[in-house]
Each structure stands twice: as C-alpha cells, then as structure tokens.
Design a protein around this nucleic acid. Structure first.
Lengths: 127, 127
DNA sequence: TCAACTGTTATAATACAAATAGAACAGTAA
DNA sequence: TTACTGTTCTATTTGTATTATAACAGTTGA
C-alpha cells in the first residue's frame, strides 16, 4: 500500500502514518497477516526520521492493530480489536465537538448522516 | 452557562473552552447576543491564565462565532457561520480517521449512524 | 474627573511534545 | 559472517501550550 506524508500539515507525522494504516486495514488494502515496510525502509522512502515511523508502529501495536514477528517484522493482526464500551465512549468524545460545530453551522441531521454514510461506504470499498 | 476545564486531559485548555462554548451555542444554552464572561473573570473562576481564555476567545472570533462589543465584551454572533464547501471538506478530513477505525473495529454502518444521530439530537436538545 | 472594568498587545519564562540525529543491542535469516 | 529486523538510549532542535507581569486604549458608572 502506498503511504505518504504531508510535511505542511498540522497533523503530527506519526498520526498521519497511523491514520493511513488504519484506513488501509478498514478498506482491505492491508489484509491481516500482511507485512508493513520496516521502520528504516519506510522512513527512508518518506524522507523522515526512523523514530517517527517507529512511534507510529508502537502506537498501532499498543492499540492491537499490528503484532511484531521477529521474522516478518510488523504484520497486521488477525484478531483486530473490537468496539468495546471504552472505545465507544472515546469515539463519542471525539465526535461530540465535530457534531456541535456542524449544528451551529446549520448542517441538518440528514446532511450529517449522509456525509457519515458516504464516508463509511467510500472507505470500506476503497480497496 | 457553566464552563469547566479538565487539567488532566490531553486536550489543550483553550480547545476545551472553544468546544464547550460551541456546544453551548449548538444546544441553545448560549443564544446569539448573549455575553460571555470576561477573560479575567473566567480565567479567575477556572484557576487558569488570562491568556489561555483570551486565546480561546480569539479563535471563536476568528471563526465567526463571537464578536467583540466594546460595551458588552464578547457576545455570541447573530449571523453564525454556515457550512460552506471548505467547512465540509475539513469536517470530512476529521471524520475520516474516526470512521476508518470504527470500521476496523467492526462497528456496523447502522451502529455508527445511530451513534451520530443520537449525539446530534442529544446536543441539540440539551438546553 | 476618577476608578474600575473591557479586550488587546508585548515580552519573557517554563514545560512539554514532535521530530531529528547517531549509536548501540538482541534476535533472525540467508 | 553479513545483513536485516524491532528496540532502546541519549541528545538536540523546534514549536506549542501555559503561565507570568505589565502596559495600553477605550468604556462605564460613581
């Protein structure tokens, strides 16, 4: 899967990486068991530091999206983490300010739901 | 409206403030024309620095949610900003990683939409 | 007029996170 | 052995978040 970073963005580089990899899993472009590039090769390809890639991989490992095989390096987990109560709470806390502002800006409930539905399907079928 | 901050949170204080005020507008607890506490009184009440509150107010002013009256201080805008194309794009960029992870965690499209709908109505009617 | 309040600005210091840099270690594969 | 894997260590630079003090211009009410 093709991975890139935007040095101008205010989103931290390691967050850009984790976001892209998680979207890759969601879309099926990254299948369970598949290997990710090594920290050294990916950092070299992107022109960024090794430790930045390592931090992204460490977060993905921490959250249960990847596991480390001494042989194959970093591979996508077969048993991906599921949406438990704690996750749903944190998701709500992240959605709340976004939905609040959309209400202020007179986005209707239907428009918001259509946007979410459209994104959901676009990500899921973007393999 | 009651405003509070969580010093333990990893969300910046000024972001906590802007989020709460925007949610207050969305819910109707803060009506257009209504005044916000002065930077000095609010910072004193919350036990934080004046500049932190001032930064939050400056962002709200920048985004068009409040205006400055030399007499009344900081008041909620009558003509609130609307959801233009630029806003929709930025909203999509913020929703995308959240939805991607929810797909990874096997949250169904219906569950996600129900959560968004529930939040939308809860915020809107929470006055 | 005077005192008390408004937002605003300037300067400085502290603390922390993000990113980079160079180096080394333990384990594994060809 | 050589070359690769993730991991860890120390150090530096940069930028943001937060606090601290101070001052300014304008407004309000006594």
């Amino acid at each position: 899967m093709l991975i890139s970073v935007n040095l101008q963005s205010d989103v931290p580089l390691y967050t850009q990486l984790t976001n892209q990899i998680i979207e890759g899993i969601a879309s099926g472009r990254l299948a369970p068991g598949e290997s990710l590039p090594s920290v050294r090769s990916l950092s070299s390809d992107l022109g960024i530091n090794m430790h930045t890639v390592n931090k992204a991989y460490a977060i993905l490992k921490q959250d249960g999206f990847v596991e480390i095989h001494r042989q194959k390096g970093v591979v996508i987990q077969h048993d991906l983490p599921v949406a438990d109560a704690a996750y749903r709470t944190s998701l709500e806390e992240k959605l709340r300010p976004l939905i609040s502002e959309s209400i202020c800006r007179k986005l209707s409930e239907e428009e918001l739901l259509n946007l979410c539905r459209s994104l959901f399907r676009q990500i899921q079928t973007d393999s």
